[in-house]
Design a protein around this nucleic acid. Sequence first.
DNA 1: TATGAATGAGCCTTCATTCAT
DNA 2: GATGAATGAAGGCTCATTCAT
Lengths: 189, 189, 189, 189
Amino acid sequence: MSLEPNSRRMELVRIAARLFRDHGYERSTVRDIATAAGMQSGSLFYHFRNKEEILVAVMALGISSTTEQLGEALAQAGNVEQRLAALFHVHLHSLLGENQAALEVMLYEWRSVSEAARPGLVVLRDRYEALWQQVLDEAAAAGLVKANTRLLRRTLLGSLHWSVQWYRKEGSLSVAELADEIMALALRD
Amino acid sequence: MSLEPNSRRMELVRIAARLFRDHGYERSTVRDIATAAGMQSGSLFYHFRNKEEILVAVMALGISSTTEQLGEALAQAGNVEQRLAALFHVHLHSLLGENQAALEVMLYEWRSVSEAARPGLVVLRDRYEALWQQVLDEAAAAGLVKANTRLLRRTLLGSLHWSVQWYRKEGSLSVAELADEIMALALRD
Amino acid sequence: MSLEPNSRRMELVRIAARLFRDHGYERSTVRDIATAAGMQSGSLFYHFRNKEEILVAVMALGISSTTEQLGEALAQAGNVEQRLAALFHVHLHSLLGENQAALEVMLYEWRSVSEAARPGLVVLRDRYEALWQQVLDEAAAAGLVKANTRLLRRTLLGSLHWSVQWYRKEGSLSVAELADEIMALALRD
Amino acid sequence: MSLEPNSRRMELVRIAARLFRDHGYERSTVRDIATAAGMQSGSLFYHFRNKEEILVAVMALGISSTTEQLGEALAQAGNVEQRLAALFHVHLHSLLGENQAALEVMLYEWRSVSEAARPGLVVLRDRYEALWQQVLDEAAAAGLVKANTRLLRRTLLGSLHWSVQWYRKEGSLSVAELADEIMALALRD
DNA sequence: TATGAATGAGCCTTCATTCAT
DNA sequence: GATGAATGAAGGCTCATTCAT
């Protein structure tokens, strides 16, 4: 299970991510993925045991790469405000940015993941949300946001997730501006 | 298209709503629906032209009955605060309450609706969101919430929608309490 | 089994004949017939035991009404030549004339008739072909056509039947002219 | 679209031709064809996009192989009389000979061909009929048959087509004898 | 690594037919 | 005579998956 970004497997995951996001997991066929990758459908099963394994790989990529990016952004942030802002910016760029299909699949195709595969993904998700929780707690301690940070985390993530349903990059707002505006709504005044 | 709550068609819509919510539209088969209704799969097509028509009927039920309930709640509310609260309470009860599967389907199965059927549903959804917009504008004028009400509407709805992913009614929080707490997060202080 | 031309049953047979001719027996549904007759599909089964009975009724109408017309035309014909001409004219008018769908169904849907129903139709067909045979024998005796009348009967009927595949009434030839021309090809010279 | 006679696709076409001829296209199921070929019904769709494509392939085989045979027979014919005879012999052998189901399907299942697929088949049919027209014109010029060759072509083809309805190879007449007798009826005397 | 061919279970849908009202 | 609702068998087709080459 190579994680090298250049490996054939990773390329397939990225192709699948885009298809799953655009048409849904159930409506995307193994043939679609293979065709987009320039191979026969049977060949995919050399790389993945079955279709669900592709889905899980997409989701794992989506959540873990976002976590990684958030980690880096937090490391570079100078103060609590910047750390808070990183939450919104990283999340939205991962969700709405170019070629960033994997996280969206993680959010909207959960029901297609078998019981067996969920725990592994939950671990990854919890790791990501733990970063959020930690920063929100810091921000609450600094008086930036309200104190009910557990619920705050969930509502904020819900707000951000939902943006895929209505945000259009052709509109007047850039992703960065949107991140700032949504953060502003969460700040105490 | 009888809207009488006792009609056979409406009964089928309710049964389908539950299946679509629990297993997803694509994973729910026409046979599943028929079996749950105690009939043969072919019989369904006496009531609906095809499977998608069932989905559309479920969605239309979900959004229009929620709109109706919100309308009634707003009519009975005495002041702006109560009207604001109605938004959260009605939405969450429609989403998380007993036997209330239809609205959730509306939110999470949009991609399975054909281009042809979307406009009709968009009209219903816009009607619902117009109520939200109106009450949020009133609340902003009264200083209860922040002024960016268009974005506020979208983020709040996102927050509420997401609750289906984590809220468990066996937990410590009732749906009403959750509504109050989420509202509290949105209030200026 | 009323044969009165005004009866409801006869009306249904005529409606079915047109549908069977235009779209084929297998492709025409009982619902199509019922709709064209302004009733529900279930109601048809008051008039006919099953779909095949409709087909048989259409075929019986087609062949027996043509036989009847041929009988009348032969009775009025003054000489052998006129009797010979009657064969071609009656057959083509029955096949290509307005509202004359039934005979064509008889020719092209034979395979859909069950073994059980065939003998009855064969009797009707033989009665019709017997008229042909008789007139052809007279014509051969008079030196109008060649002597191999049994084969002649079959090839001539084949020629006429095939006209439904290529004859267009919008073309330059009337049905009567076509009948004359085809007959001319069969005459000795 | 391999035309090699040994290819699996061609084998399936031949199997389908026989079924379509014996029971009709509409009454022959995809499962019937698969069973006759010793495979599962789903496997057929690896070779053909849909059922209609099988029908079109059968028809194309029927008409083009007959055209090919006629071309060869004409090339070997020494004089006009032999060329004229080739028309009848090739056509009847293709229609009534052993394992020759495809041409009959072409003649009797035309209504099941979609509008989209017709032009391609019409081209093939016209190519065949052009050979007929050419030879009939030569024969008329030589005084062998009557001058109205366009109508003659249609009536003769109709006569030959119809033979499938009544010819039984167990009878007293061989296919070759029948061809000669039908030709004799068309000759001037 | 990849392909070509096939599998087999399942899916949505159709449709002749039935029957209580 | 006719309807509305349903049946149930079957039909064309899809698709994840397998496997010899």
